[in-house]
Amino acid sequence: MVPLRLALYQPDIPQNAGALLRLSACLDVGVDIIEPCGFVLDERKVRRAGMDYIQHSSYVRHPSWPSFRERLAAEGRRLILLTTRGEHRHDRFSFRPGDTIMVGRESAGVPSEVAGAAQARLRIAMRPEARSLNVAMAAAMAVGEALRQLGAFPEERPEEGSCA
């Protein structure tokens, strides 16, 4: 089983989606994009943030939440939601191979039906007066922690350049 996937629930901002596709390419993490998106999802729209890394990203588009949830169940994956109302801190949570980390819409998060379907809801520890992190930054932090725990960072290939 693939160690980890990242799910974007109805993303609103193409630059964030592009940044997460770039993260996907650099860290070899598959992405699930749950539609509808708040923008036309095509390579041109996300290329600016994703640059030429998008061609190395592995992503699957799902036409709806029910179709994504069906596939998640069929593959036996655990859904881990990043939310400001999470019960657990991301750095104190035990990730497992096969987990799918989900981020919500930048403008509205996820509906209660989606939050209720998650096996765990995680938050990133922040100063009390801070509202939230950018969705791409939060996803990068959680994906990095999960890969660290799973020992699943890709092998470095210095001869091929850097994703930094």
Rank of each mutant, 00 (worst) to 15 (best):
M1R: 11
L4G: 07
L4R: 00
A7I: 03
A7V: 01
Y9A: 06
Y9M: 08
Y9E: 00
Q10Y: 05
P11F: 01
D12I: 01
I13A: 07
G18F: 01
A19K: 03
L20R: 03
L23F: 01
S24P: 11
C26M: 09
C26V: 12
C26G: 12
C26S: 07
L27Q: 12
G30N: 06
V31I: 10
I33A: 04
I33Q: 09
E35Y: 08
C37V: 14
F39Y: 08
D42H: 13
E43A: 04
E43G: 09
E43K: 11
E43R: 14
R44P: 05
R47C: 10
R47T: 14
R48H: 09
G50M: 13
M51T: 03
Y53I: 05
H56P: 02
V60S: 11
R61Q: 13
R61P: 00
P63M: 13
W65F: 05
P66Q: 14
R69D: 04
E70T: 12
E70D: 13
E70F: 02
L72R: 11
A73L: 09
A73S: 12
A74G: 14
E75M: 05
G76T: 08
G76D: 06
R77E: 03
R77H: 04
R77C: 05
L79K: 07
I80W: 03
I80S: 03
L81M: 08
L82H: 01
L82E: 02
T84V: 15
G86A: 12
H88S: 13
H88G: 02
H90G: 00
R92H: 14
F93N: 00
D99M: 08
D99P: 03
T100M: 07
I101Q: 05
M102D: 00
V110D: 00
V110W: 00
V110R: 05
E113D: 11
A115Q: 00
G116Q: 10
A120F: 11
R121E: 04
L122W: 11
M126A: 13
R127D: 11
P128Q: 12
P128N: 12
E129T: 05
A130W: 09
A130S: 15
R131P: 04
L133F: 03
L133A: 10
N134K: 04
N134W: 08
V135K: 05
V135M: 07
A136V: 11
A136L: 14
M137Y: 04
A138I: 06
M141I: 15
V143T: 01
V143A: 05
G144S: 15
A146P: 02
Q149M: 10
Q149C: 06
G151T: 06
A152N: 01
P154G: 03
E155G: 07
E155P: 03
R157Q: 14
E159H: 10
G161S: 09
G161I: 07
S162C: 12
A164H: 15
A164V: 11
